[in-house]
Design a protein around this nucleic acid. Structure first.
Length: 312
RNA sequence: GGACGGGUGGGUGAGUGGCUAAAACCAGCAGACUGUAAAUCUGCCGCUCCUUGCGGGCUACGGAGGUUCGAAUCCUCCCCCGUCCA
């Protein structure tokens, strides 16, 4: 039996410096970076999703970005499949995979696996959406109560998105979704996982977020979006739901656009709220070595290296 | 100087005598979340006390008085703000 392979996980809210830390650690530990971010999956959406510019990658290979076209719907299941492949490849080359995690669900899907459930069915969803439009959102919840009472009890009346998924699973399998949960789930095996979490003080994080959004605009975010619309990416493409992209798209498309001065603070605010949701999720993550500052902080980089360095 | 309109909790803003610590929305805080997850959703949100309860007390709708059993709501005066007429 060969020595167990290792996986280093770096998680933290947006703007906490995960990418920078990952590159520094990769340089010292012979690693390659694997992104775990639901937005960096999409091609051509670069600035606003915070993809690390090639110049800052310092020659370290980065994986699992730019896997999907803007019109695609990429899901946690898709991510899991790609990630397993990438981890295997990197390890086979004798390199250390370093996962930078912004999307908690994707991390969980990779580490703990997903239940063996059918994927989305656009046909089923379309039918349900039509019914919801005709009969009201709470009508869907009543359908769910009929096909999966236990599951319905766990989902809020107005949480249409989760209700639709639960009904979808019922329709596709003929069984209540809640009954199928937790069976046949296989997590990641064969890897020793080490998690490092970045958690700067809230005030500093928020200030950093505000600065980062400004920087994105200075780097040509608006021009990027203009290019996307010229290229014909439809307004209802999924990536236009990502922070900022929808607002900027509208700003460009509107005959009477609101000034950027009004839009920037809104995007900063939405980003802070997003960071809070990430923090809520990550707090529950087990066995994380938490570091209370930013990944670009040299002191933190040293601490992280101490933690990550293989023991004796 | 005159005529209107308006001043409500961190913000916008509803409320014209009791059912109002005051709708709704936003912000803020906390939380949930296994195939859209940068999504979606939930709770709290004046202060305070305790036996934590559809519990008690206090403060609150520009200011000061007044009417009333009872006022954010009615009256008087004053102070601000906006629009219009001079």
């Amino acid at each position: 039996m060969s020595a167990e392979r290792r996986l280093l996980v770096i998680l933290g809210p947006t703007a906490s410096g995960k990418s920078t830390l990952a590159v520094e650690l990769a340089l010292k530990l012979g690693g390659e970076v694997v992104c775990c971010d639901s937005t960096q999956i999409y091609r051509h959406f670069d600035i606003g999703t915070g993809k690390l510019p090639v110049a800052e990658q310092k020659g370290i290979p980065h994986h699992l970005t730019d896997l999907a076209e803007p019109e695609d719907v990429f899901t946690a299941g898709d991510y899991r499949r790609h990630a397993l492949q990438a981890l295997g490849d990197i390890s086979a080359r004798g390199k250390l995979p370093i996962l930078t995690v912004g999307t908690g669900l994707y991390l969980r899907a990779l580490l703990e696996g997903l239940d063996d459930l059918p994927g989305r069915s656009e046909a089923v969803r379309e039918r349900l959406r039509q019914r919801a439009a005709a009969r009201g959102a709470e009508y869907l919840h009543r359908i769910l109560v009929k096909c999966d009472p236990a599951g319905a009890a766990q989902i809020a009346l107005r949480d249409t998105q989760k209700i639709i998924r639960a009904i979808e699973v019922c329709f596709l399998t003929g069984k209540p979704a809640s009954e199928l949960r937790g069976r046949n789930r296989t997590g990641l095996t064969g890897f020793h996982v080490l998690k490092i979490g970045l958690m700067p003080p809230r005030e500093q994080l928020y200030a950093q977020i505000d600065r980062r959004v400004e920087t994105m605009f200075q780097s040509g975010w608006v021009e990027e979006v203009r290019g996307l619309t010229h290229r014909g990416v439809p307004p209802n493409a999924k990536p236009f739901t990502f922070l900022g992209y929808g607002q900027i798209r509208e700003h460009i498309a509107s005959p009477a656009p609101r000034p950027l001065d009004a839009i920037v603070p809104e995007i900063q605010q939405a980003t802070r709220q997003y960071a809070k949701r990430q923090i809520t999720w990550f707090r529950r993550e087990a066995e994380v070595h938490w570091l209370a500052s930013f990944g670009h902080d040299v002191k933190i980089q040293r601490e992280a290296l101490e933690i990550a360095r293989p023991q004796g």
